[in-house]
């Protein structure tokens, strides 16, 4: 685990070094390219703000009501820490709703706790299956999805197993 932490420290600085180094040698107009790109990210973030407000409020209601206590029974069957079950399930349907739950988890157990780290890794290695299928197939009028959903669920489960195992290293 310590070794992985060590590598993690290097990844982002190295990407910055590589991209900026490559660009300056290529002679492109790097700073205005940066500003253009940053504007895009700025707009996207502002765009999701109303969504986050709505979802964090809904998750807040659910948590304050004591509803998560009821989920512990389900989690015992699935052998995952109780707090993780809703995140994993909701993530398959809606990324932003799962984000709301994830942030709630950070608040209650901390982002650096075992559960906080595991949740972060699982969230990073899974996709919103049902939403994505409906966007992509819906846009071209595909109704028979064949083996897409089983395939995506297998990939998601492999990601969860991988997350649990890699954190045991």
């Amino acid at each position: 685990m310590n070794f992985l932490l060590y590598i993690s420290d290097y990844i982002i600085p190295l990407i910055f070094f590589y991209v900026v180094g490559y660009a300056i040698l290529a002679g492109s107009d790097i700073f205005s390219d940066f500003i253009e790109g940053a504007k895009e990210g700025f707009e996207v973030t502002l765009g999701i703000m109303p969504t986050l407000i709505g979802l964090l409020a809904a998750v807040g209601i659910l948590r304050a009501s004591g509803a998560f206590g009821l989920l512990e029974n389900i989690s015992r069957i699935l052998q995952l820490p109780a707090q993780l079950v809703p995140v994993v399930i909701v993530k398959m349907f809606s990324s932003s709703a799962a984000t709301g739950l994830l942030l709630d988890l950070y608040k209650s157990v901390g982002p650096d706790s075992y559960i906080g780290v595991l949740a972060s890794v699982i969230m990073s290695s899974s996709e919103t299956i049902f939403y994505t299928v409906s966007v992509y197939f819906g846009s071209v009028g595909i109704k028979k999805t064949r083996y897409v959903i089983p395939g995506a669920i297998i990939a998601t489960i492999a990601g969860i197993i991988g997350s649990v195992l890699v954190l045991r290293l």
């Binding site: 982002p111 290695s125 492999a158 990601g159």
Partner: peptide, 23 residues
């Protein structure tokens, strides 16, 4: 949310993502 090492999940996340993609 106050993580001391926010990017410490990078390497484990890359490995987990590789698992799911390979599957």
């Amino acid at each position: 949310y106050g993580s001391v090492t926010p990017s410490s999940i990078l390497a484990p996340a890359i490995i987990a993502t590789t698992c799911s993609t390979l599957a």
